[in-house]
Simulated scan of single mutants.
Amino acid sequence: MVVVDSETATVLRVKGLLEFRCQLDSTDEQLVRNVISRTFETLRSQVKSESCVLAVSDSPVIIWPNKDAYATPEEITPSTLCEDMHQWIQADEQESSGKKSSKKKSKKSSVASVINLRLMTEVTKPGPLSAPILTKTVLKSHFVSVTLPLDCVVCTGRSDTIKDACEQLIEALTHQLCEMEKVTLQNMKGMTLLVPEPVHFLLPEPKGLVTVVYPVGVPDSQLVAQRKELHQQFELPDDRPYFRRANAYHFPNEPYKDGYLRNPHLALTHPTLDNGKVYLVQGIYSYHHYMQDRVDDNGWGCAYRSLQTICSWFQQQGYVELPVPTHKEIQQALVDVGDKQASFVGSRQWIGSIEVQAVLSHLLGLTSKILFVRELSWRPKAENWPTTSSLKELQS
């Protein structure tokens, strides 16, 4: 979900592909840069042109943002409120009927819903018919063709109309193309261009949702300087990562590619405790349990699954890039540190807290402490709780 302030009603997300094509007739770096900049300017003009179209996903609604927000069906006008577009988004059972939904979003909700739009372009243009003219030119040149993945997000207020939203969306798309141009020029190597890719991050309140453009193929380890600048720009602490790709915001209704559940505790009823307090984990983790991944670990895989869940938290917070280890990888790690014999790999032997601690240290480089609880009323002293000092080294 996208958590927003009380003034935000709907989040509009527009995605689309633009073809970046240019011909480089020279290897001179400055001339190449000029051609690239002119091509991006052409794309910005295309977004601002009357041929630009926004189609609302799962609905019959189509909007021409640069034609005074003209839209179809005719019931939708430029003065229609953005949140009223929810009525036209079809549920599965409505797809065949084409009728608008009778559901309306609660105006008292503190969670903004997301409306997805597709960026499209009209391919037919009115004009006089003319005979084609063919020319032939022989020269050596380098032709560049890249597909740019645009992905913009705009938060609209409760009183914002479709016309207001169109102005914001076109401005956001234009700005993103400027950022893509900057990233392309910064990472250009000779005649080779890296594709710029927008990534969304949900920062602590009141900063909210922000978008950063990264070059595809450049690992996070080579983007440390850029991330440090972003931390300073948004006045964020340096004891945890915020702008690694693993920190990317996951929008509602988008299934996770790995198929694992995320944060199932949020859907559970909190236990009632006498003289107790419930503490919840911060951040996102994937839930690993018996019989997943086509591994029959019923009766012996408890600590393996707990360890995988812990590792997933560090991965999805951006502290580490290592994938969640499999049972065999966990067993091999224990062999590598000298805790187990080689025959342990591939076995069905269970492990405990000591082994979990050893694997966290060996694979993730984490220092941990095992606390022994003698009785239910006992509480560990404050100095025994884990600190973030060991995580600072992982953040950069």
Rank of each mutant, 00 (worst) to 15 (best):
E393L: 10
I115V: 10
I162K: 01
T184N: 09
E19D: 10
S368C: 08
E50K: 15
S377Q: 11
P241Q: 05
F20T: 13
K67A: 15
S49W: 12
S102M: 14
A71L: 00
E122Q: 11
P323V: 08
T156I: 09
Q30N: 11
P204S: 03
T124P: 10
K369T: 12
D84K: 12
P325T: 07
A303V: 13
S26D: 10
S102C: 13
E83W: 15
A248I: 00
V61H: 02
V210T: 02
R262N: 05
V138H: 08
I370P: 01
A333N: 04
Q292E: 15
K340I: 03
R227A: 00
S306E: 03
Y319R: 04
T137S: 11
S312W: 01
T8W: 00
G338R: 08
A225R: 13
K99A: 12
L322R: 14
D238E: 14
K48A: 06
Q222K: 10
E122C: 13
A112H: 04
I115M: 12
P386E: 02
F251K: 03
L334S: 03
F251H: 01
S109N: 09
L209F: 00
R379A: 15
K15G: 08
C22A: 06
S145P: 00
E50N: 11
Q317N: 04
D84F: 09
S97N: 04
Y70H: 06
L360S: 10
I310F: 07
G259K: 03
T367G: 15
E355S: 00
S37K: 07
P73G: 03
N247M: 06
C52M: 09
I310W: 06
D293K: 11
S312Q: 06
E74G: 00
K340L: 03
V345Y: 11
G352A: 10
A9K: 13
Y279A: 14
L54C: 06
G338V: 13
E74A: 07
A55K: 05
T367Q: 12
R13G: 05
S110F: 02
Q232H: 11
S49K: 08
I351M: 02
S97R: 06
K105V: 15
V335C: 03
T137D: 10
V47N: 05
G283A: 07
E181K: 02
M188F: 02
L334R: 01
L134D: 10
L364P: 02
R227K: 11
Q87P: 05
V278P: 06
L363V: 02
D239R: 04
G352V: 01
V195R: 14
A55N: 08
R348Y: 01
V2S: 04
T147D: 10
K277D: 10
W313Y: 05
D28R: 10
L203A: 04
L12G: 06
L223Y: 08
C166L: 02
Q46Y: 12
S49D: 15
S49H: 08
K67M: 11
S113E: 15
L139D: 12
V373T: 05
N187T: 08
Q331M: 00
L364V: 07
D160A: 14
S347E: 08
R294F: 09
W378A: 13
E74W: 09
